[in-house]
Design a protein around this nucleic acid. Structure first.
Length: 566
RNA sequence: GCCCCCGUAGCUCAGGGGAUAGAGCAGUUGCCUUCUAAGCAAUUGGCCGUAGGUUCGAAUCCUACCGGGGGUGCCA
C-alpha cells in the first residue's frame, strides 16, 4: 500500500472518531483531502479537510483541525501532525514509512505504480496517426505517434486494456489520384510527353516510386490502358507507402495491434452487404437519415452540430464521413468500453458530427477525441518548411534521421497536447544541459556507473543490483534530507500514473522524470555511496537502485531509452 | 459570425481550488587528486492578458472583453 493511502486511512479514522464522539458536528465524514505542500517546511503531506468542512461543521477550521489531530489513532506512519496557517494539518512521516518505498520499488520493479481500472471502463480502443497511404508522414504525425504510443503505455500501466489502432484510408478517389500520379511520372520517365493533371501528388517521392518500378520491372506497364496502369501503380504505391510508415514507426518504437483498412468497410459479406451498408441501415432505423436536394443527410443538428451532414452525395458517391461512420460503428460492435481518437487541432470541426453519430446509436460520451495542437518546425529559431534534400515539407523520417528517436520523443512529449510546439531541430540535436532528455538519461547512466563501480565489473545493471544490493538492507540510516526527498518523489509515482492516464497527459511524466533526476543528482552530490561504512553503503545503494528502477520505468512509459552508459 | 487552443520571469513552459507562484534555458558567480562536471550550489528576474463574479481561499472555476494561432466543404 502506498504511504498516501495509509495516511488517508489514518486521517479518515480520526475524522470518523471525532464525529462519533460528538467533537465534530458533521453528518457525513468528509474526505481526508491530502496534498503535497509546495514548501517541504510544511511537512510531507497536508490535509485541508478542516478548512473545507468549516462551514458545514459551524466551527472555525483550526478547532476542527485540533479535533482531528486529537483523534488520530496510534500508528507507525506519522511522526508529527501540526496545525498551521488558517487550518492546515501538516503531517511529517516517520522515516521508516518513507524508507518502505525503496523496498516496494525494488520488489515490484517494472510493476511499480501499476493501477487497476474497473470492468466496463477498462477496454479502450485508441486510434492515432492514421496517416493517408499516399505520401510520407509529416512532423505532425510524429507528434501523434509519440503521444498515442506513450498514452497507451501510461494507460496500460494504470490498468486500462488498451488496443492500439491505425486507420488506413485506402479507399476513395485520393487513391486513384495517387495511382495516376505515379503512372504519369512513370510514363514521363519512359520519355512520354504526358502532363501531370491538376490536383495530383506532385512530391518528389512519387517520382522515386515510379523510378523504383522502372528499376524493378522496366517497361512492363507501358502498353497498358491508362486505367489499368493507374490501378497497378495505385497498388504498388499503396504497398510502398504503407511499408514505409510501418518501418518508420517500428524504428520509432510505435506498434499497433491493428492496421484497419478502410476498404474492408466496403467488402460485401455473404448477404451482399458491407459494413457501410449496415451502418447506414442502422442509422436509418434510428430515424436520423433524410433525403434532400438529391442527397442523403444525417440529422446531426439533433445532437448539437452546426448543420446536418451529407452521407450520400447527389451524384451517388459516399462522403468520407460515411466511411468514418461505418468505421466507428464497427468499433462499437467490437465491444470496446471507450473509444479514443487522437486528431490534429485542424480537425476539431469534425468532432461534433462524430459525437452526434455515437449519440444517435445510443452511446453518448463513448467517443473521446484528444486534440493535439500542431508542431512548428524551426532551425535555430527560424521557421523551416522545406527539406534541404527534397525542397518539400520536412518529413517525419527526415526529422528522426537528424534528431534521433529519444530526443524527438522526449521533446514531442514534454508539452501538454493542447500546447503548440515549436520544435527547433538544432536545439533538439544538442547533447548538453539545454536538452532535458540527456539530463534524465545521465542520471540513469550515473546510477548504473555506481553499481558497476561497487560491484567491480561491467555486468548489466539489473544483474549487478541483484548481486550487490541486499534485498533486506537496513534502510533506517537513510535520514539525510536529499535521501528523504528522493523517497518522497518515488512515492508520488503511482498517483502520477493514475493522473497522467486519466488526463491522457503523458507529458507529466517528462516533468516527473526531470524532478526525480534532479533529486538524484543532488543526493549524489551530497551523499557519497561507495566506501562509506557497509550499512550506509548498502542502504544508499538500495536507494540508488530504486531510483534507477523508477527512472527506467518512467522513460520506458515515454518510449525513451534508459542507457546504462553515456 | 460561430467553434477549438493559447496568453504566467528576457525565452520555452509547469502549476489536479490552498500557505511566500515554480522549473529549464539565457545572465552573473563559485565547486572536479574521492562513485560519470551531460553534474551540483549561489544569485538576478513576476500588475499570472484585462474587468467582473463564485469561494473561508482563485494563476486555477464561471462570464465578458483584448491579443495570438487554428478551424468552419455534397474535399479526402
Amino acid at each position: 500500500m502506498q504511504i498516501r493511502e495509509q495516511l488517508e486511512a489514518i486521517v479518515d479514522a480520526a475524522i470518523v472518531a471525532a464525529i462519533s464522539d460528538g467533537t465534530l458536528a458533521l453528518e457525513a465524514a468528509p474526505a481526508a483531502a491530502l496534498e503535497r505542500p509546495r514548501d517541504p517546511e510544511n511537512g510531507d503531506w497536508a490535509s485541508t479537510v478542516a478548512m473545507r468542512s468549516a462551514k458545514l461543521a459551524h466551527a472555525n477550521p483550526r478547532q476542527i483541525a485540533e479535533a482531528i489531530v486529537a483523534h488520530l489513532p496510534e500508528n507507525e506512519t506519522i511522526k508529527s501532525a501540526e496545525i498551521a496557517g488558517p487550518g492546515f494539518i501538516n503531517f511529517r512521516l516517520a522515516d521508516a514509512a518513507l524508507q518502505s518505498v525503496i523496498a516496494a520499488v525494488r520488489e515490484q520493479r517494472s510493476d511499480y505504480g501499476r493501477g487497476t481500472i474497473a470492468e466496463g471502463e477498462r477496454k479502450v480502443n485508441l486510434e492515432y496517426i492514421s496517416a493517408n497511404p499516399t505520401g510520407p508522414m509529416h512532423i505532425g504525425h510524429g507528434r501523434w505517434a509519440t503521444l498515442g504510443d506513450s498514452m497507451a503505455r501510461v494507460m496500460r500501466h494504470a490498468g486500462y486494456d488498451v488496443y492500439e489502432e491505425f486507420y488506413v484510408n485506402d479507399h476513395g478517389t485520393q487513391m486513384d489520384v495517387f495511382g495516376n500520379s505515379i503512372a504519369v511520372r512513370y510514363m514521363q520517365l519512359l520519355g512520354h510527353d504526358v502532363q501531370m493533371p491538376e490536383q495530383c501528388y506532385g512530391g518528389a517521392y512519387v517520382v522515386d516510386i515510379a523510378q523504383g518500378i522502372i528499376d524493378r520491372e522496366g517497361r512492363a506497364y507501358e502498353d497498358m490502358s491508362d486505367d489499368e496502369r493507374m490501378a497497378a501503380m495505385r497498388e504498388i504505391g499503396y504497398r510502398e507507402m504503407l511499408d514505409d510508415q510501418r518501418t518508420l514507426l517500428e524504428r520509432f518504437g510505435t506498434t499497433f495491434d491493428c492496421w484497419f483498412s478502410e476498404s474492408n468497410l466496403y467488402a460485401e459479406d455473404a448477404d451482399g452487404k458491407s459494413a457501410v451498408d449496415r451502418a447506414l441501415e442502422v442509422m436509418r432505423e434510428h430515424g436520423y437519415l433524410y433525403e434532400a436536394e438529391g442527397a442523403t443527410w444525417f440529422r446531426s443538428t439533433e445532437f448539437g452540430d452546426d448543420k446536418d451532414r451529407v452521407l450520400i452525395k447527389a451524384n451517388g458517391e459516399l462522403t468520407y464521413f460515411t466511411s468514418d461512420m461505418a468505421y466507428h460503428y464497427d468499433k462499437v460492435c467490437r465491444g470496446f468500453d471507450h473509444l479514443i481518437n487522437i486528431w490534429g487541432a485542424d480537425h476539431h470541426g469534425y468532432i461534433k458530427r462524430c459525437e452526434a453519430m455515437m449519440e444517435a446509436w445510443g452511446h453518448p460520451g463513448m467517443l473521446e477525441v484528444v486534440l493535439g495542437q500542431l508542431v512548428n518546425l524551426l532551425r535555430n529559431g527560424e521557421p523551416v518548411r522545406m527539406s534541404k534534400r527534397t525542397g518539400e515539407m520536412v518529413t517525419f523520417a527526415e526529422l528522426v534521421d537528424e534528431v534521433g528517436v529519444d530526443a524527438t520523443r522526449y521533446l514531442m512529449l514534454s508539452r501538454s497536447s493542447d500546447q503548440m510546439i515549436d520544435f527547433d531541430i538544432e536545439v533538439a540535436k544538442k547533447q548538453d544541459a539545454s536538452n532535458p532528455v540527456y539530463y534524465v538519461q545521465y542520471a540513469h547512466a550515473r546510477i548504473c556507473s555506481v553499481l558497476r563501480k561497487a560491484a567491480g565489473d561491467d555486468a548489466p545493471a539489473d544483474e549487478l543490483a541483484a548481486r550487490i544490493v541486499p534485498a533486506d538492507a537496513d534502510l533506517s540510516v537513510l535520514t539525510h534530507e536529499s535521501e528523504l526527498a528522493l523517497m518522497r518523489k518515488m512515492d508520488d509515482f503511482a498517483e502520477l500514473i493514475a493522473l497522467a492516464a486519466r488526463d491522457r497527459a503523458p507529458y507529466r511524466l517528462t516533468h516527473y522524470a526531470q524532478e526525480l533526476a534532479s533529486l538524484f543528482h543532488q543526493f549524489y552530490t551530497n551523499c557519497h555511496i561507495i566506501g562509506e561504512e557497509p550499512a550506509v553503503q548498502n542502504a544508499r545503494l538500495a536507494l540508488a537502485d530504486a531510483t534507477r528502477i523508477v527512472l527506467a520505468l518512467t522513460l520506458d512509459l515515454l518510449g525513451v531509452s534508459a542507457p546504462e552508459r553515456m
